[in-house]
Simulated assay, not measured.
Amino acid sequence: MIWVLGVLCALALVALFFPFIFWVDFSADLNRVTVHVRFFKKAIYTYEKKFGKKELSEEEDGFVAVDDEETAVAPTTPVESKSAPKVEQKPEPEKTAEPAKTTEPATPAEPEKKVEAKEVPHPVEKKEPAKVEEKKSSEEKTSEEKSSDDDEKEKKRSLTDEEFWTLLLTPEFDVRAWWAVRHALSALFKLFRIRFVDCFVEGIRFQEYENMGYAAALNGFLKSYPYIGAWDFRMDWTRDHEPKAEGHMRASVNLCRTLCLILSILFYGGIVAFTFWRRRSHILKTNELPELGFIRSKIVKMMSEDD
């Protein structure tokens, strides 16, 4: 059993940390932009956009070649429309009236037999006074409970627009909310491991060659950085290359980082929701709003008026 558990643990670790790789191949120049997205080697998405001047064909421009020779066209003469010959309609012979059909008298319906209902005497139960009092007391209790529930529902209310925006713009709540958002975004950025491969930009020109030399030196300095170092900025010293950018981006993700992202969003989102709910209940109970600064109070007034 121990080796079975070991094999299962190894398979679980492989499944959690197995990298799913996405490739993004892109190229752009003065005429078109193309993007190809591949999952391992299978293409799953392709985008291409062309722009710039396009040469129109003769058919698109509407020009048609015509011979110089003249062609004679026979005059068309109007054709007289001939009316169709009239056809005499013969009178149809009069139809003789058919004898009226005699209807047999309907047989009278048999009178319904009246069934006399026999009255069955039911014994009258006598209710004890103790049971009657218990029922009255239970009915009174249910009515009191219903009235208390109705009173509690009337006491419950929702936040007004001014109270809602005041709660959101409270400095303490804003600090807690931005703290949670920052950590959730950091977990989102760590979901994919991005790496650029064989990326270059060519056709870079400046008016003076001295500036192009400074740019080339800066390119060599930026090679030490992880993301920018994969890019090669090529100067067009001979001025015969059009501007063009091309490269590949590799993004890998696994199940472990996906689960970490989901858990972090639930954790930080729960903290913000609990803080909001606690402050909301305090405002509904005490009807006291926190004091805001001049700018925040102006924003609250603007948002409440817009709503």
Rank of each mutant, 00 (worst) to 15 (best):
G6L: 14
L8W: 07
L13K: 04
F20Y: 14
I21Y: 04
F22E: 01
S27H: 07
A28V: 09
A28Q: 08
N31F: 08
R32A: 10
R32G: 02
T34N: 03
V35L: 14
V35Y: 00
R38E: 05
K42I: 14
K42G: 02
I44S: 02
Y47S: 05
K49P: 00
K49R: 13
F51I: 00
K53L: 08
S57I: 03
E58S: 11
E58C: 06
E60S: 09
V64T: 14
D68P: 02
E70K: 11
E70H: 06
A72N: 08
T76C: 07
V79I: 12
S83Y: 07
A84M: 12
Q89G: 08
K90T: 09
P93W: 01
E98S: 13
P99A: 15
A100M: 10
T102Q: 14
E104L: 15
K114R: 09
K114G: 04
E116M: 05
V120Y: 11
H122N: 13
P123G: 10
K126H: 09
E128A: 14
P129V: 06
K131I: 08
V132H: 03
E133C: 02
T142R: 12
T142V: 10
S143K: 14
D150T: 10
E152K: 14
E154G: 05
R157G: 09
L159E: 03
D161F: 11
D161I: 03
E162A: 06
T166Y: 01
P171V: 04
D174I: 12
V175W: 06
R176M: 12
R176Y: 03
W178D: 12
L188Y: 12
F189Y: 13
L191Q: 03
R195A: 08
F196S: 00
D198C: 03
V201R: 00
E202Q: 15
I204Q: 00
R205H: 05
E208L: 08
E210G: 10
M212V: 04
A215P: 01
A216M: 06
F221L: 12
K223T: 06
S224W: 04
Y225R: 07
P226T: 03
G229R: 00
A230Y: 02
W231Y: 09
D232F: 03
F233L: 11
D236F: 01
T238Q: 11
T238G: 09
R239L: 09
H241S: 10
G247T: 02
H248R: 15
N254G: 01
N254E: 05
R257D: 09
T258L: 15
F267D: 07
Y268A: 00
G269I: 00
V272E: 00
V272A: 04
T275P: 01
T275I: 05
W277A: 15
R280Y: 07
I283C: 00
L284N: 00
E288F: 03
E291A: 15
E291S: 15
E291Q: 14
R296D: 13
I299V: 15
D306A: 15
